[in-house]
Every structure is written in structure tokens, then in C-alpha cells.
């Protein structure tokens, strides 16, 4: 199930925030999307997630055209999504946060899946805590757990590591790797190049809405255009 992005463009007034972006991500890839501030990373992610209408381009997952699909349909098709500031359902308990995910993509009983997921993300001890009382890192875990409930094919994550302490960062990464091993694809927007180059197999770099580099972390680190974009001229 490859995820393909073809000629996606988004303009705001006179500014082209995302400019004819194309790439393909194969099943099980772990891809980082980097770029300096204002390079169009979040806009691209919102476009792929169905939150903003794209001015042009096509998005498809495993051959299914998802260019015009609303977010809930993307979710049902296996596109998971997390936010920079975790958006858990604050006034519901951890269990309720997981239970409210429609059970469209699994034949297992929901009870079992909720239990398994909670075990997997190590939130079982706070299962009946109101979500707003969780720490920032726990909220990130819970948000990812909600994505797990979707049984996703690809997970789009917006700055998953921002504001996470080192211990939590390890468990979050561990969880992501575990999911990745199950064959789930990841596309991670991240500001911090160090984290990305250390963990991702492939890195795409955006600048001024365009893809300026796409390759292995090593290639990216040495790519003059990337260095220029980050250091400025």
C-alpha cells in the first residue's frame, strides 16, 4: 500500500504555501519531513489529512484516490493523524478516548483492542483518569493510541517530539518503531533535524513550499540546498 502525493499545491492569496509537491512513500517506510519555519510542512500535512482544500494535486493510498476525502474518511481508510499540541478529548477518560474510535477496520471485539492498545502504550495504569489530568507526554501517547485503534496503514504526525522529555521521547519512539515493524508507514513532520536524521530511513526536505531534497539522512545532511535553506544566505 504505497502512499502517493502528486503535484499537491496550496495557495493562500498570493502566497503559494505548498508548490507542486510530489513524492511516493512505500509500505513500511519511516519518513521524516523537514524544512525551516514557514516552509509549508504543516500546510502540506493538513492538505494530506483532508483539513484544508488543496488547490491542485492528487493524494492516493494503495491506488484509492483520497484527494477530496474528508478527514473522517481518511481515518477510515487507514490514514492516522496526530497534532503538534496533542488533541485528546480532555473531558473523557483514557478508556473513553479509545472507545469513541469507530471500529471500522478490525474484526476483533473493541474491548479487546482497547485493552491491547492500552497495554501497548503503557497507559493501563491511568485508564480511568480524565484525559486533561495527564502529562503532556502521556497525552501524546494517548493521541497515538487513538491512532493505533484505527489500525492505520500510514500515520501522519505533526512534530511528535516537541515538548517531550527525553524519557518520554524514548517510549514514544519505541512505540512508533514497534508500529513500524508491523508494517505501518510513518510520515513525520519535524523541526529538529537531529532527531529525524537519527531515526528516519528517508528524509524529505521542503523549502518555500517545494521539495528541495529527498533521500537518506546522510544525503540530506550533506545536501548544499538543505544547508542553505536552514542556515539562510
Amino acid at each position: 500500500m504505497s502512499f502517493s502525493v502528486e503535484h499537491v499545491t496550496k495557495r493562500y492569496g498570493g502566497v503559494t504555501a505548498v508548490d507542486d509537491v510530489s513524492f511516493q512513500i512505500g509500505k513500511g517506510e519511516f519518513v521524516g519531513l523537514i524544512g525551516p519555519n514557514g516552509s509549508g510542512k504543516t500546510t502540506l500535512l493538513d492538505g494530506l489529512g483532508g483539513y484544508i482544500r488543496k488547490d491542485a494535486g492528487r493524494v492516493a493510498l494503495g491506488g484509492h484516490d483520497l484527494s477530496k476525502a474528508p478527514p473522517y474518511e481518511l481515518a477510515k481508510r487507514g490514514v492516522g493523524r496526530t497534532f503538534q499540541v496533542p488533541r485528546v478529548f480532555d473531558n473523557m477518560t483514557v478508556v473513553e478516548n479509545l472507545y469513541c474510535v469507530p471500529a471500522a477496520r478490525s474484526s476483533e471485539p473493541k474491548e479487546k483492542r482497547v485493552e491491547d492498545t492500552m497495554e501497548m502504550v503503557r497507559l493501563a495504569s491511568v485508564a480511568h483518569e480524565i484525559a486533561k489530568n495527564l502529562s503532556g507526554g502521556q497525552k501524546k501517547l494517548l493521541e497515538l493510541a487513538r491512532v493505533v485503534m484505527l489500525n492505520p496503514t500510514i500515520v501522519l504526525m505533526d512534530e511528535p517530539f516537541s515538548g517531550v522529555d527525553p524519557a518520554m521521547l524514548e517510549s514514544l519512539l519505541g512505540l512508533m518503531r514497534e508500529m513500524n515493524k508491523e508494517g505501518r508507514t510513518f510520515l513525520i513532520v519535524e523541526h529538529n533535524i537531529a532527531v529525524i536524521t537519527k531515526n528516519c530511513g528517508r528524509v524529505i526536505c521542503l523549502d518555500e513550499g517545494k521539495v528541495i531534497a529527498d533521500g537518506s539522512p546522510g544525503d540530506i545532511r550533506n545536501d548544499p540546498r538543505v544547508i542553505e535553506a536552514y542556515l539562510g544566505t
Binding site: 481515518a75 493523524r81 488533541r87 478529548f89 469513541c100 474510535v101
Partner: peptide, 11 residues
């Protein structure tokens, strides 16, 4: 609680 987030989980 959060219309957008609800959509991302398939609601």
C-alpha cells in the same frame, strides 16, 4: 470537545 480531532479518529 473537538470537532476536528473527532474527525481524525474516523468520527
Amino acid at each position: 470537545q473537538d470537532r476536528e480531532a473527532a474527525q481524525t479518529v474516523g468520527i
